[in-house]
Amino acid sequence: MRGGPLIEWRDAWGSPMTVGNSTITPVARSLVARWPGGGSVWSGPAAVIVEREGRTERIPIANLNGRILWAMRVGAVTLIAAWIVKDRRRRNSND
């Protein structure tokens, strides 16, 4: 499917909003994947840029849910793969 690269990371800046004496600019991060029969897009928050009294601060937004879920998935797959490899080695050593 046309319209851009196959896989693309992009940062998108939102419109700044003024709250009190602070200006907040939200930043989103996206992973766009395209293939001949379709595509997939993941978007999530990356950080907020805070401008206050002449200072600019970038406050990152951690995706705690995502980290916990991926840690569990990767942990389970690693454990299963390690068991399978160990089992095969044991069988080969018995032959």
Binding site: G4, A12, S15, A28, S30, V32, G39, G44
Partner: peptide, 13 residues
């Protein structure tokens, strides 16, 4: 698909 990619914006997040 082009509409789908429009999700990749700060306004949606």
């Amino acid at each position: 698909l082009a509409e789908l990619v429009s999700v990749a914006s700060a306004a949606k997040v």
